[in-house]
Simulated scan of single mutants.
Amino acid sequence: MATMRRRKQAKDDQLTESLLDDYDARDADDVAPEPHEPPHKAVPSAAAPSRHTALIVHPGEFNLQAFIQSVLAWWQRMFGACFGPIFSYATHLWPVPSREPQLSLLQAERLQQLRDKVAERFDIASPSHQDSLRRLWSLAFSGEPCTALKTPRWKDMGWQGDDPATDFRGAGLYGLDNLIYLAEVHPDTFRRLLDKSEGTRAAWEYPFAVAGLNLTWALSELLELHAPTGAAAAAAAAAANSNSDSSGPRPPRGAAGRAFLTLLSESEVAFEELYCAAYCLLDATWLEMRASYMEFNAVMKRVKGQVEKALASRPADMAQLRQRLLAGVPGAAVWD
């Protein structure tokens, strides 16, 4: 077995918390502003006042309910502040349609499954969670039995201390699942990233396992898989109340999250495959930037931006997304 690179001893404060920006703080910025009404032209004082008529045009075949919804939407813009109760009663009878995209049954099911996975915290007291840790151990240290869940040997896999349970933080159990997926489905890539066998490496390398947990967090945040909190939760609740006919998970609002829904329709392991490609991109970016341990945040920020850009270009499938992410990355052409 190849000798694994182990970063030199250093203070681990930089990786004990999430390496990403605050999720809730950006929620309000993601909402597109409502278009402004064009100002009315002032009527000259010398001219006789004219009557202003609002025309509501409904394209296509006339539909009574759609016409009434258009009237209500116009009424809300013009007089909502004065006649709020009347408008609320009217919209209860004739709800204004939501502008959010409609999810297919398959998309809704898989999106909810992903959000449930992201929400599950790692619990060292759980026997199944302990089994997952031992499973990752056997994949990383083939032929070497896992005799203890607390041992300095975990550091050789890129955990920060003797007890990997202290490193999970916001990534939860799904962060561990993604590392296992990488090892089982793409074993050569896993070994190359774990051993850091390519390129000129820094004296203080990024810790492999903890970096993987942070990558899970970054991608799930980008794709809006975390349950909203604070102001974001209030906005989501208000949207749900205004659209009482809707059921199932709320669609992502960002371009990257919406584009990901197409990939999710194609494959139930779309997130895991995105994770594996993004980890290859992370390592290549690390080498390109000649980064060291203290620059991990900058590397992660750049990787997250590249993933967002690639998804926003609306790739047709995972193969096309992988090509856009890893074009020019050494060794990426050979995908085990």
Rank of each mutant, 00 (worst) to 15 (best):
T16S: 11
A209E: 04
D12K: 03
R110S: 08
V334R: 13
Q306G: 07
P59W: 07
M318T: 07
F296Y: 09
E100H: 06
A255T: 08
G199Q: 11
R6Q: 15
M1A: 15
R258S: 04
R5H: 11
Q160Y: 07
R250G: 01
D156R: 14
W74L: 12
R201S: 03
L182T: 02
Y206G: 00
R290Q: 15
L215N: 00
M1Y: 10
S220Q: 10
A108F: 04
K309G: 05
G175A: 05
A333L: 04
L136D: 02
E288V: 01
R153N: 08
P228I: 08
A46C: 12
R191K: 14
I124R: 13
H40N: 04
A332E: 12
P152D: 08
G305M: 12
L136T: 01
V307M: 10
A25W: 10
G60L: 09
K150P: 05
L193I: 07
T189P: 00
T151F: 01
V185M: 10
L193V: 06
A218I: 03
A90R: 03
W335Q: 06
D29H: 11
E221K: 11
A240M: 10
L15S: 03
P39N: 10
C280H: 06
L179D: 01
M78K: 12
V307H: 13
T285L: 10
S138C: 14
E17N: 11
R99H: 13
V299D: 03
A2M: 15
L223R: 09
A203Y: 06
E205I: 00
I68V: 11
F122T: 02
K301R: 14
S18F: 01
A240D: 10
S220Y: 09
L263F: 00
S138N: 15
V71Q: 13
L215F: 04
L55T: 11
A312V: 06
A148Q: 15
L311C: 08
Q320C: 07
A235N: 06
G257R: 03
L215R: 04
D123A: 07
L219T: 05
G84P: 09
K304M: 09
